[in-house]
Design a protein around this nucleic acid. Structure first.
Length: 602
DNA sequence: ACCCTCCGGGG
DNA sequence: GCGTACGGAGGGT
């Protein structure tokens, strides 16, 4: 009988269930055709694009009553044109001539969709000057650009004549930080380059009133020079940020060749694969309804591991490999063009992976490959395929299960595993790695990395662990700094184990020193306090405040308090309990009979 | 001290 | 599977 994995998927209400036991991970999909895929046009390097970064200075935010003082435009060779005149029309004409004469491929702005371009358009209209800009009538919800809270940005894209693309770097910043969460709350052009490590200290900043004052000093004045200096710095900062984060969007041209860079920075990743396939397959299949299915396999074993070498094996590019190897392309792509595309992206990425100058392209290809799985499992997108998505996950679970079995057979200790990677302990991790390569399906890439001296998995340790690197650093994954806990409570276990790795006595010595400091009454209060909102029905906390209120409190002699002495016995007991909990995991033999035996610490 | 509202980006 | 989904500043009482 012919192997058909799609028959192993059954729908139960809104859920797809895969009969995993029948999946054959050693089966390989035979492509219908070996016709290779190549991008229609050569996609030149991001650094070769002709660009213009544009920024304006104005007398205020209202384009109907305020005017433009200056416009700066910086090209890809860092040449800057500053248009600054008493006559606003000269400024506008300067910019528009520059755009029409040089026709850059891309115009970058910082919040240009929200401010600069509509302002320029309005001033052109008022001054009766022809301009090349057009605001789209179709509003786009950029679901991954979330300025604050959870409400995404909705924007009207901007089009420029001569097929010039407009990119709003501010929106790119919001999208970049949506998953990474590395930037502070302020996404201003002054703060973002610093948070991204592109600038080390703050540069010249002009308050709004200063701009007005500088302008009023008049042509040739120091004030005008200040405005120009400030404008140049804004252009420079926009360039710094754009060069870091826009390439990822630019190289998505590979999958959506007809989508301009402007739209690539606004659309979701799955929709770009979708439009690319619509083009390549010349069809628009009706999107499938979103169905639930089981994801990757994850688990962990509570304990402290340090007696042998620790390392992680992981399958690199697992989802793309599964899709390619088992032919899990969208079923609406009858010609299997997706597979040819994925094959091209994989080999292209492999080809350039060690060329530093092409690292942007390489990283973008990695993203593109990963988004295909996103297309399969997302509702409302043409070419989505829930059964294929469910099978991708099911194969990933089978592969991981086999890896776990092989590692176990080698006598290694499994510590933690999640979707595509496994932490384990063994005298010779390299031999385990070799065995995995030998026994897993041909063509899969397994990496051996993240060597560690020690690893700790607490109770409920799934996606929750501590790693001690060979350099002596402690890496925390999961909830190791809970807001609902005091610093002492968060930090004591980490410090205790770190000392324990030296010796049991060192850990006990650390613990005793902590107890002594608590007993002295001089333990820093900021290490003891908890700061959080009061929830409904928290009787103890309601003594110091009302529900929803933010409170900073600790435990005093008479219970919860906000001032006065802390309770020595409460905090001693707190860390004593922690110590016993830890010892039960890391050295139960130290606890006589397994009971909660205290050392004479008081 | 507490409670509520507003703001964030651009000038 | 369920419930929750921002954080700081500033002003009024």
């Amino acid at each position: 009988m012919v192997y058909n994995h799609r028959l192993l998927v059954k729908r139960v209400k809104n859920k797809l269930v895969v009969n995993e036991d029948k999946l054959d991970i050693f089966w390989k999909h035979e492509r219908k055709s070996n016709k290779p895929w190549k991008p229609r046009n050569n996609i030149k390097d991001y650094s070769e694009l002709s660009t213009a970064i544009v920024d304006i200075e104005t007398s205020g935010l209202d384009s109907t009553i305020d005017r433009i003082y200056a416009i700066g435009a910086r090209d890809q060779s860092k040449n800057v044109n500053i248009f600054m005149h008493f006559d606003e029309r000269k400024i506008l004409k300067g910019l528009i001539s520059l755009i029409n004469d040089t026709k850059p491929e891309i115009i970058f702005t910082y919040n240009g969709i929200g401010f600069d371009i509509p302002f320029i358009i309005k001033r052109c209209e008022i001054n009766k000057i022809k301009h090349p800009f057009k605001i789209s009538s179709r509003k786009i919800r950029v679901s991954t650009a979330i300025p604050y809270g959870y409400e995404p940005l909705e924007v009207y894209p901007i089009f420029v004549q001569h097929n010039i693309q407009h990119v709003d770097v501010y929106i790119c910043v919001l999208r970049w930080d949506n998953t990474r969460r590395l930037l502070s709350d302020s996404k201003s052009l002054k703060q973002v380059p610093i948070d991204m490590g592109l600038r080390h200290e703050r540069r010249l900043e002009l308050e709004y009133e200063e701009i007005l004052r500088c302008w009023n000093e008049g042509e040739g004045s120091n004030g005008w020079a200040q405005i120009e200096k400030y404008l140049r710095l804004d252009l420079e900062d926009t360039a710094l940020v754009a060069d870091k984060i826009v390439p990822d969007f630019y190289y998505e041209k590979y999958i959506a060749p007809n989508t301009g860079l402007g739209m690539l920075t606004l659309l979701g990743a799955g929709s770009k694969w979708s439009s690319g396939l619509q083009l390549a397959c010349n069809s628009y299949p009706k999107p499938e309804q979103k169905l639930q299915f089981q994801g990757g396999l994850a688990g962990a074993f509570t304990g402290l591991y340090h007696k042998k070498r620790i390392a992680q094996v992981d399958i690199s590019g697992m989802h793309p490999w599964i899709i390619w190897n088992y032919g899990l392309h969208s079923k609406y792509d009858v010609e299997e063009i997706s597979l040819a595309m994925i094959e091209y992206f994989r080999s292209e990425r492999e080809r350039i992976i060690n060329i530093p100058e092409l690292s942007n392209r390489q990283k973008a290809l990695k993203g593109i490959l990963n988004y295909y799985y996103g297309l399969l499992g997302t509702g409302k997108l043409a070419f989505n395929d829930m059964v294929a998505a469910a099978l991708v996950c099911a194969y990933s679970r089978c592969l991981l299960k086999l890896m776990l079995q092989i590692i176990k057979e080698m006598g290694a200790t499994i510590i933690e595993y999640d979707t595509d990677g496994i932490y384990f302990m063994h005298d010779n991790p390299e031999s385990v790695h070799q065995q995995l390569i030998a026994k897993l399906p041909q063509g899969i890439t397994i990496k051996l990395e993240n060597f560690a001296k020690a690893m700790f998995i607490p109770e409920n340790g799934c996606k929750n662990y501590l790693l001690w690197t060979p350099e002596g650093k402690v890496i925390r994954r999961g909830s190791w700094s809970s807001r609902a806990k005091s610093k002492i409570e968060n930090e004591h276990p980490i410090q205790y184990i770190t000392h324990f790795l030296e010796s049991y006595e060192a850990a006990e010595e650390y613990h005793k020193a902590q107890i002594r400091q608590i007993q002295s009454g001089n333990y820093p209060i900021d290490q003891l306090v908890i700061r959080r909102r009061i929830k409904e029905g928290e009787i103890e906390l309601l003594k110091i405040g009302k529900p929803k209120q933010f409170v900073t409190y600790y435990t005093g002699v008479n219970g919860i308090c906000t001032s006065g002495n802390y309770s020595k016995s409460y905090y001693c007991q707190l860390i004593n309990t922690k110590r016993v909990e830890l010892l039960q995991i890391i050295a139960p033999e130290r606890l006589l009979g397994g009971s909660v035996q205290q050392l004479s610490l008081f």
